[in-house]
Amino acid sequence: MKLRIEDNSLRLRLSEAEVHQFAETGRVAAVVPLGPAATDALTYALERVETEHFRVSYGAGAITVKVPATLANQWTTTDQNGLSATLLLTDTQSLKVLIEKDLDCRH
């Protein structure tokens, strides 16, 4: 899974195997080690949740994008390539979230 953070946007791109894992388990995650200790890492994950809205949580070295189950199920079982949402964080600040299938990815 690839993570791209740019300005006020967060983008996840999943390989075919990761899309299948997400469809089966409701979660896929990756870990980037940033130092020698196990706590010196960034974990980023995609989770299927029983809510109506996209959410993003951050804490303890982890970013988790939470996708409503109905949207996640439709995305994993059709040719639909992506999901997107714009989350209003404050009155003047938003975060655009994009989740895409990276089906040409072979690594």
Rank of each mutant, 00 (worst) to 15 (best):
T51F: 01
V31F: 03
R55E: 13
Q21D: 13
V28E: 12
V32N: 11
L14S: 01
L42C: 11
L34H: 13
V49L: 02
V65Q: 00
E50Y: 06
V49N: 01
E52V: 00
T25I: 11
G59D: 10
Y44H: 14
A72F: 01
I5W: 09
E16M: 00
G59C: 05
T64N: 09
H53V: 01
A29E: 14
E47A: 10
A69F: 00
E16W: 01
G26D: 01
Q21W: 04
P33W: 10
G61E: 08
V56G: 10
L42K: 10
P68S: 00
A23H: 04
H20L: 05
P36N: 05
Q21T: 12
A69W: 02
G35M: 12
K66H: 07
A37G: 03
D7P: 02
P68H: 03
S57V: 09
E16S: 05
R4E: 15
A17F: 06
A45V: 06
A60F: 14
H53M: 01
A38H: 06
R11N: 14
E50W: 03
G59I: 01
E47F: 03
L10F: 13
V32A: 10
F22S: 04
S57Y: 07
E24S: 09
D7V: 06
Q21A: 09
T39V: 11
G35W: 12
T39D: 15
G61M: 11
Y58D: 04
G26N: 03
I63S: 05
P33Q: 11
D40T: 10
V19W: 02
R4Y: 15
A62V: 13
S57M: 06
V19G: 00
A23L: 03
A17P: 05
R11Q: 15
E18T: 06
F22H: 06
A60P: 04
A45N: 08
S57C: 09
E24W: 08
L34R: 11
T43S: 12
I5T: 14
Y58W: 13
R11A: 14
K66Y: 01
V67A: 00
V67C: 01
A60N: 11
I5S: 14
E6M: 08
L12H: 08
I63Y: 06
E18P: 13
P68K: 01
S9T: 14
G59Y: 08
D40C: 12
P68Q: 03
L10G: 09
K66A: 02
A38Y: 05
A37L: 13
D40Y: 13
A30V: 08
P68W: 00
E16Y: 02
K66V: 01
A23D: 07
E6A: 12
A23M: 04
A41M: 07
V65P: 03
V32C: 12
E47Q: 11
E47L: 06
T51D: 07
A30E: 15
